[in-house]
Design a protein around this nucleic acid. Structure first.
Length: 399
RNA sequence: GGAGGGAUGUCCGAGUGGUUAAAGGAGACGGGCUGUAAACCCGUUGGCUCUGCCUACGCAGGUUCGAAUCCUGCUCCCUCCA
């Protein structure tokens, strides 16, 4: 349904320009400006949709890129519809994957949904958020499903890049996976979204939402896609399954350390996508990274935690001193088998603990532990601090 | 429904009866250098009661002194034909 044309003011244009300064795509061109004008004239705030799949319990910085953009929309006076994809989580979004996702059970999905919401509110303004779950409407009757399925062709769905690749290389695509984008698109119909946000990997799904809204006689959403934040390796998309994520609930020290371990090449993206600004011109690469680490720890914890994390980092990695909090590990008295002690203290297998000992990776109160007597009196470890590699510490208590 | 191809360690991928805990690469981890960066060098990378033992090449049986490699059945995937 075509919207009546509005005459945007310079203000509308400026707002649109600000909002799209670091997006990958804002489609269709100019749509946002029009929508802003419409919202201003009608006094009705725009509804910006973000779908989250509660497939993992934690939100990481990659997710916050989009949340940050939503926050900007909120600050411009608009509403956020946070969609918990509790139904679609049962499908598993195949985006960017070449294999089907494991399917979670209901209890896990519920638990994840709850923590997701809580973590999202660290970025969003809770007073302008509507939280919905797509199980509220996606439990369609068969005839409703037919109506939905009639809107889209197989060829259309196979245009999606990862489907096309999998199809071309003879890897399996289940019908359920093909259905996923359609369900996501139908969500936009159900909540009457004006704007939908997502990563660039979501572009297809978001655009399909437009088609779906049109098929259901609604006005079409515009879409904003955000660039994908690389993970700790600086290369691949930040994701829990790749193990390269910085979680918003990571402890301050851990968050700080992870940021410092990022390759320099990732800095421009991190500043752009997380802070919405360019690199500081006057800082060395090292100081730039410290500045970023402080900002992020402050955002997700507080300024005090950031200072403490910075100080702790100095102590452990620059002065090579001990961190101020070291977990304690109880071991039984008598003869202590070092691989076993390391296994309980650091979660390594005994075999790998042996190898690490041989490689000189283990220190006791700062001195390298030789890999040759594997059994030592437990009393010789009592109260001492074992260190594995550069950054894992445990205080041993015999008892 | 018919014909053919395939399933190997975290991933990719060699290997078609014996020096195979399984080449090579990636990733990861440890050591050196450093800014917990990059680049580079070295090493490790199934488990354990560790000069040995156990488990492992889709699953279950079988042949053999010996099987990831051969045979049978099963499961799953792919292709072509219908």
């Amino acid at each position: 349904m075509a919207e009546p044309h509005r005459v945007p003011t310079d203000d509308d244009r400026a707002t649109a320009e600000w909002l799209t300064r670091n997006v990958a795509d804002a489609l269709p061109a100019d749509a946002l400006t029009q929508q802003l004008a419409r919202a201003r004239e009608s006094g009705k705030p725009l509804r910006a949709k973000l779908g989250l799949d509660p497939t993992a319990p934690d939100i990481h910085l990659g997710h916050t890129v989009v949340l940050q953009k939503l926050r900007e929309l909120q600050d411009a006076g608009h509403h956020v519809v946070l969609l918990i994809g509790d139904m679609t989580a049962r499908v598993g979004d195949p985006s960017g994957r070449d294999t089907t996702r494991p399917v979670l059970d209901d209890a896990a999905i519920d638990a994840n949904a709850a923590t997701y919401q809580e973590q999202a509110f660290k970025v969003l303004d809770p007073s302008r958020v509507e939280v919905v779950r797509n199980s509220e409407w996606l439990d369609l009757s068969l005839s409703e499903l037919f109506a939905l399925l009639r809107t889209t062709t197989v060829a259309q769905l196979l245009e999606r890049d990862d489907f096309a690749k999998r199809f071309a290389s003879h890897r399996p695509i289940t019908i359920l996976e093909l259905l996923y984008p359609m369900m996501q698109a139908y969500d936009s119909v159900a909540i009457k979204a004006d704007i939908e946000l997502g990563g660039t990997d979501q572009k297809f799904n978001l655009l399909l939402g437009r088609d779906m809204q049109k098929a259901y006689g609604q006005s079409q959403q515009s879409i904003l896609t955000m660039p994908i934040l690389p993970g700790l390796d600086g290369e691949r998309k930040m994701s829990k399954s790749l193990g390269n994520q910085i979680g918003v609930r990571d402890a301050p020290d851990e968050m700080y350390g992870k940021v410092l371990s990022l390759p320099d090449t990732a800095m421009p993206e991190y500043f752009d996508l997380l802070l919405g600004e360019g690199l500081p011109a006057d800082l060395s690469p090292r100081d730039t990274k410290h500045a970023l680490a402080k900002r992020l720890v402050t955002r997700f914890h507080d300024a005090g935690a950031a200072d403490a994390a910075a100080a702790g980092f100095e102590r452990v990695f620059v002065d090579k001193a001990l961190p101020d909090e070291i977990p304690s590990v109880q071991i039984p008295g008598g003869e202590a088998h070092l691989p076993a002690v390391l296994a309980t203290a650091f979660g390594e297998s005994r075999s790998s603990a042996r190898r690490l000992l041989v490689q000189g990776a283990v220190r006791c109160d700062g001195d390298v532990v030789p890999g040759d007597p594997l059994d030592v009196p437990a009393s010789s470890l009592d109260g001492r601090v074992l260190q594995l590699g550069k950054r894992r510490f445990a205080r041993i208590n015999v008892g």
